[in-house]
């Protein structure tokens, strides 16, 4: 009896809540978002599944969509970028109005708000770049933007709050620029260079306790798909040289995404005379060595690459393997830590 009363009270509460939402967001289609949005290797599949479900739901109609994130209890910086990118794609490609019901959880709400996601769903770039600039920055661009370097600078400047070293902050800026440049050069395929609003790069940063996280994201073909055609014989040679590895497939087998990603990184490190290609990825990874601690994760296609600062705790410093699912594009996460004595207040 008591259970029945509780259920009845809960149902009435939900009906009331539903009516209030319908009044506040008239004509909207309702989508309940995931409760946890994070981009660590363990969380990423669930996050991507949630965003993919949202994307499919939004595209199925023309009416505005209400994305309910009120139950979201955890949203990390990379997931914020993934979510903001998914929302922007719906707006640009399908002219959809996306409104968001913000999380009740304070931290999750703050993270989303700082990335320009607001109740009214308007997350134009002006809002993105002005929100909480002291701890978070995000920007996005595409071919034809006049000065992407000035925009990525706003994100990289966060590093100056992490370490009292302008040169180090500049290295962060260079890595972000290189990531965005690689997107423009490779991720969306070679064509006549006509700007396409859906072919975007995203760059973001967030200061954390004694550290900073920087993110680069695109939804292009991914490094494993583009590297063989861009690096040609040099990469093929590296792949053949790696065949003797115990985990390597036979010479006639099609290499996996993780094998191509690993070969691409090794080849760029060891082979000189690559003409104009192949300088950037090494620099993006080497950024980790400039900080006392930290790591880089690269998710691309069905591959994940991780490199940890050698000065960090014992364990595997470098790993490249199958991701277990297909990441739609490339996501790079730099987690940088400062020494306590270097960290700025």
């Amino acid at each position: 009896m008591a259970i029945s009363k509780r259920k009845s009270r809960r149902d009435r509460g939900r009906a009331k809540e539903g009516a209030a939402l319908r009044a506040r967001f008239p004509g909207h289609r309702y989508f309940r978002g995931p409760s946890r949005l994070a981009a660590g290797p363990g969380d990423l599949p669930g996050t991507l599944k949630g965003l993919s479900d949202f994307d499919a739901f939004a595209r199925a109609g023309v009416e505005p969509v209400l994305l309910d994130l009120s139950d979201a209890s955890h949203i990390d910086v990379a997931a914020c970028v993934l979510l903001a990118a998914a929302m922007q794609r719906c707006r640009i490609e399908h002219k959809l109005q996306i409104d968001v019901l913000m999380p009740r959880n304070g931290l999750a709400r703050f993270a989303l708000a700082a990335f320009g996601v607001a109740d009214d769903g308007r997350s134009n770039e002006g809002d993105l770049e002005e929100a909480a600039p002291q701890v978070m920055q995000v920007t996005s661009g595409m071919k034809g933007d006049p000065s992407p370097g000035a925009r990525t600078f706003q994100v990289a400047k966060l590093a100056e709050r992490l370490v009292a070293d302008e040169t180090l902050a500049d290295r962060v800026h260079a890595a972000l620029n290189e990531a965005a440049d690689n997107v423009l050069s490779w991720a969306y395929g070679a064509h006549d260079g006509t700007p396409n609003p859906t072919e975007r790069w995203w760059v973001a940063g967030m200061l954390t306790n004694q550290g900073a996280t920087f993110i680069a994201l695109d939804h292009g073909a991914g490094i494993p798909a583009t590297a063989p055609q861009n690096f040609g014989d040099a990469l093929t040679g590296m792949l053949k040289a790696m065949i003797k590895d115990k985990d390597w497939r036979t010479i006639n087998a099609k290499p996996t995404d993780s094998q191509i990603l690993r070969a691409t990184i090794q080849q760029r490190r060891t082979v000189s005379g690559l003409e104009e290609r192949g300088k950037g990825l090494t620099n993006m990874i080497a950024l980790i060595d400039l900080f006392p601690a930290g790591f880089i994760n690269i998710f691309s296609g069905n591959a994940i690459y991780t490199y940890r600062n050698p000065a960090a705790k014992d364990g595997e410093k470098e790993h490249c393997g199958p991701l277990g699912f297909q990441f739609p594009g490339t996501l790079i996460i730099w987690q940088l830590k400062a020494r306590l004595s270097e960290a700025r207040n």
Partner: peptide, 11 residues
């Protein structure tokens, strides 16, 4: 703020 390789990457 120099950026990119080619003209399609920015001014």
């Amino acid at each position: 703020f120099p950026f990119g390789r080619y003209p399609s990457h920015g001014d």
